[in-house]
Deep mutational scan, measured.
Amino acid sequence: IQLFSRPDFLGDHFSFEDDQAALPASFRPQSCRVHGGSWILFDETNFEGDQHILSEGEFPTLTAMGCLASTVLGSLQK
Rank of each mutant, 00 (worst) to 15 (best):
Asp43Ile: 05
Leu23His: 02
His35Phe: 11
Ala25His: 13
Phe42Met: 04
Gln20Asn: 05
Val34Met: 00
Asp50Ala: 15
Thr71Met: 06
Pro24Ser: 04
Ser15Tyr: 13
Leu10Ile: 10
Ser26Met: 11
Gly37His: 05
Arg33Pro: 02
Leu76Phe: 08
Gln20Thr: 11
Ser31Ala: 05
Cys67Ser: 04
Gly11Met: 00
Thr71Tyr: 08
Gly36Thr: 08
Ser38Gln: 15
Thr45His: 13
Thr71Asp: 09
Ser15Leu: 15
Leu62Ala: 06
Ser15Asp: 11
Asp19Glu: 07
Gly74His: 12
Ser55Pro: 10
Ala64Asp: 13
Gly49His: 02
Cys32Thr: 04
His52Ile: 15
Gly74Glu: 00
Leu10Lys: 14
Asp12Thr: 13
Gln20Gly: 03
Ala21Phe: 08
Glu56Pro: 12
Phe47Lys: 00
Cys32Arg: 04
Asp50Leu: 09
Lys78Gly: 05
Phe47Ala: 01
Gln30Lys: 09
Leu73Met: 09
Gln20Ser: 09
Phe9Ser: 03
Pro60Asp: 04
Ala22His: 12
Ser38Thr: 15
Thr63Asn: 11
Arg6Ser: 11
Lys78His: 08
Met65Val: 06
Pro60Leu: 06
Gln77Tyr: 01
Thr61Lys: 02
Arg28Ser: 11
Ser38Cys: 12
Ala22Phe: 10
Asp8His: 14
Gln77Met: 10
Asp18Ala: 11
Thr71Gly: 11
Arg33Lys: 15
Lys78Leu: 11
Glu58Pro: 01
Ser15Asn: 10
Pro24Ala: 04
Asp12Leu: 09
Asp19Gln: 02
Leu68Asp: 15
Pro24Tyr: 04
Leu73Phe: 14
Phe47Asp: 02
Ser5Gln: 07
Glu48Thr: 12
Ile53Asn: 10
Ser55Asn: 14
Leu10Phe: 09
Trp39Gly: 04
Asp8Leu: 09
Cys32Gln: 00
Gly49Glu: 02
Phe4Gly: 02
Arg6Phe: 08
Thr63Asp: 13
Gly37Asp: 05
Arg28His: 10
Glu56Val: 12
His13Met: 14
Thr71Cys: 11
Phe14Glu: 08
Phe47Gln: 00
Asn46His: 10
Ser26Leu: 11
Ile40Ala: 08
Asp12Ser: 10
Gln77Leu: 06
Phe42Thr: 01
Leu3Met: 10
Glu44Val: 04
His52Thr: 11
Val34Thr: 08
Glu48His: 12
Phe14Tyr: 15
Cys67Pro: 03
Gln2Gly: 00
Phe42Ile: 04
Arg33Gln: 08
Phe9Lys: 00
His13Leu: 08
Val72Met: 12
Thr45Asp: 11
Lys78Thr: 07
Gln51Phe: 13
Asp12Gly: 06
Leu10Ser: 13
Pro29His: 06
Asp43Ala: 14
Arg28Ala: 11
Pro7Thr: 09
Ser55Val: 10
Thr61Gln: 06
Gln30Thr: 03
Cys67Trp: 11
Ala69Tyr: 10
Asn46Ser: 07
Asp50Glu: 15
Ala69Asn: 15
Asn46Arg: 05
Glu58Ser: 12
Gln20Val: 14
Thr63Ala: 11
Pro24Ile: 01
Leu73Pro: 13
Leu3Asp: 02
Leu10Asn: 13
Glu56Lys: 14
Glu44Gly: 14
Gly36Leu: 08
